[in-house]
């Protein structure tokens, strides 16, 4: 299940090195799964082959007089099998307009820098197949964040909220180094936190959350999930878990979640965010009931 196990797959000599590189191992896995069941997608893709795809990209640049008024630019991008939204905007930038600005790095859904608002939904550009979208494809920066330029949004607030929950392992009680011992985690406990560890800080969930949009102090799904990852880790002591719960049970912590499931639906790593937030609510209530 883990990404590591899939690594050998990427070592295969790809027929089309450029396109292979843009695919994440997860996409490959999904494709393998789907290829057995659905033949339609491949039919669709071959129909699109050789065609151009129309993408409408949000443009805005406060530093250039002509571009201070936000607008959409149309780009006709030649379609290639396996093309992602990120591939399309990269093509547009490299071929038509080098001023088109957006963040991207690993192109395989690991770095979390290319979350866009694609056809009305927060998606990861590198993990979204053009063939699966309605056309024309409308690409906008993430909602509820300040736009810096084109598709680049200001992530400072998101990072602030992430740091509020102290997103790092805290246990000074390390085994003696001379014993060559490790801080072990049970398999069950690893399974419990597994999904929550997958967060790539892309900010899609926070952007989709109606409450985070209204209440600026709300920690937001990503930060709460990060807190879950450590609060539920048995290697951390009871004391630190209580400390974590105290951060979460503030007025603008877990209680603001209205279980709209927006975050869970947009998460590109399929983290069950709402489930984790709900569990933390119950944990906080239980903790407080204990001392009555």
């Amino acid at each position: 299940m883990s990404t590591q196990q899939q690594k050998p797959n990427t070592q295969e000599t790809p027929e089309d090195p450029e396109m292979k590189g843009a695919e994440s191992p997860q996409q490959e896995r999904l494709k393998e799964k789907e290829s057995d069941m659905v033949d339609e997608t491949s039919v669709d893709e071959s129909e699109l082959e050789g065609d151009t795809v129309l993408i409408k990209v949000f443009r805005y640049d406060p530093e250039v007089a002509d571009k201070q008024e936000p607008r959409f630019d149309d780009f006709h991008v030649p379609f290639k099998k396996g093309m992602t939204v990120l591939d399309a905007v990269m093509y547009a930038r490299d071929t038509y307009d080098s001023s088109l600005t957006f963040r991207h790095s690993c192109r395989q859904a690991v770095c979390g820098s290319d979350a866009f608002f694609v056809n009305g939904k927060q998606r990861l550009g590198c993990k979204t197949q053009i063939s699966e979208l309605e056309h024309p494809v409308r690409i906008e920066p993430l909602p509820h964040q300040e736009v810096v330029k084109d598709l680049v949004v200001d992530m400072d607030h998101f990072y602030d909220q992430m740091h509020t929950v102290e997103p790092y392992f805290q246990n000074e009680d390390t085994p003696d180094a001379s014993d060559l011992e490790e801080q072990r985690q049970t398999r069950e406990n690893r399974e419990k936190v597994k999904m929550s560890t997958r967060c790539i800080w892309c900010g899609a969930c926070m952007s989709s959350c109606n409450i985070a949009a209204g209440d600026n102090e709300y920690l937001g799904p990503a930060a709460i999930n990060k807190a879950y990852r450590f609060a539920m880790d048995n290697r951390e002591g009871e004391e630190i878990k209580e400390h974590r719960l105290r951060i979460l049970e503030q007025e603008h912590g877990v209680w603001r979640c209205q279980t709209q499931f927006s975050c869970t639906e947009v998460c590109p790593k399929d983290i069950p965010l709402t489930e984790h937030i709900q569990e933390l609510k119950r944990e906080a209530v239980k903790k407080n009931l204990k001392f009555w």
Binding site: R71, F72, D73, G120, F261
Partner: peptide, 26 residues
């Protein structure tokens, strides 16, 4: 081609057509 774009209400309830079940329930 230049299209005015309002990042105000359009981000929230102006997007009602794209809401999912959980959002409607809320």
């Amino acid at each position: 081609m230049s299209q005015s774009y309002n990042r105000g209400l359009i981000e929230d309830f102006g997007r009602w057509k794209e809401f999912s079940a959980g959002m409607w329930a809320w």
